[in-house]
């Protein structure tokens, strides 16, 4: 049995798994994850047509997994969040941010509260919040963790664990909304596009949960590409990828992100995210 297994495993390892010149991309699992494969396959088809190379999309389960796959050169292009993009570019020399969504230049986090807290719409970060329960989204999220934690520390002069009686990590934005709507947590921090989409879709009972504060703007999601793609796919390849992304106008494709369009971005646009990440000791 052992022999057979070893043999099979050898075959499995030796088999050419993906052709060497397949261009692979991924996206952090932040928006609607269901049918991700199908929706992003359309994006892959679009890029394949524009770039004239084989393009493949692989789904990942966490921000860290997206960064790791990028760093390990298993994917060459990724749709990152602000923080994960900074983490990724710090680990891959010459990698660069290519494009961001129109909305990403001025992104926001909403602080939401359950009605039983008695907090009012637009109340801001107030001392009445002390000793309530609070949930972030994913630990590696810019809008669900990094920026809200930064503003909380700024407002209260203390880490969140000392301000609130309990600090949880719901795992993602939809779950943050669901947990605050049920009153399981008093307060939560959520990506504003996710909130707006859910409200529009009628999934939120706005009598139960409301927005108590909107953070100032900061830059968020962006496309980042590895520095060695020109070497592998031909001179000027990264520029062609950038052009293809900027030219993406099909509403159905943009819906996957969901953004209204893409605009150019550079590494420097995210300097603020990097310095906040260092301040909160989330990056070295």
């Amino acid at each position: 049995m052992l022999k057979r297994l070893t043999l099979a495993l050898t075959v499995l390892l030796a088999a050419p798994i993906a052709s060497a010149d397949t261009f692979v991309f991924t996206a952090i699992p932040d928006e609607d994850e269901t049918r991700l494969q199908q929706r992003f396959q359309n994006v892959a088809d679009y890029l394949e047509q524009q770039l004239e190379v084989d393009v493949r999309f692989v789904p990942v389960k966490s921000y860290a997994a997206a960064v790791t796959a990028f760093r390990n050169n298993q994917v060459q292009l990724a749709w990152f969040g602000g923080l994960s993009g900074v983490q990724a570019r710090a680990r891959v020399p010459d990698s660069r941010a290519l494009a961001q969504g129109v909305e990403d230049a001025e992104f926001m986090t909403y602080f939401i509260a359950h009605q039983s807290t008695g907090l009012e719409t637009g109340e801001g970060l107030s001392d009445r919040m002390r000793d309530m329960t609070f949930t972030f989204g994913s630990k590696g999220s810019t809008s669900g963790r990094l920026m809200p934690e930064y503003y909380l520390r700024e407002a209260f002069g203390q880490p969140p664990e000392e301000v609130f009686s309990r600090v949880g990590f719901s795992g993602n934005h939809s779950r943050t909304i669901s947990l605050v709507a049920s009153g399981a947590y008093d307060l939560g921090a959520v990506n504003y596009t996710v909130w707006e989409n859910e409200v529009e879709a009628g999934n939120i009972d706005t009598d139960q949960v409301e927005v108590v504060w909107k953070t100032p703007n900061y830059p968020d999601y962006q496309w980042t590409i590895r520095g060695d793609v020109d070497e592998r796919f031909g001179t000027g390849f990264a520029d062609r990828v950038q052009q293809a992304l900027l030219n993406m106008e099909d509403a159905e494709l943009l819906e996957s992100f969901p953004r209204s369009g893409f605009i150019p971005a550079s590494n420097d646009d995210y300097a603020i995210i990097e310095s906040v990440g260092k301040e909160l000791d989330l990056i070295d």
Binding site: Q87, G168, R175, L282, I283, D284
Partner: peptide, 20 residues
């Protein structure tokens, strides 16, 4: 971690999410 209970596993997960 979703419950805000900081067990050892919670910190392992945090370190991995921070890619440390």
């Amino acid at each position: 971690g979703i419950l805000g209970i900081t067990t050892l596993g919670f910190y392992v997960d945090s370190a991995i999410q921070e890619i440390r």
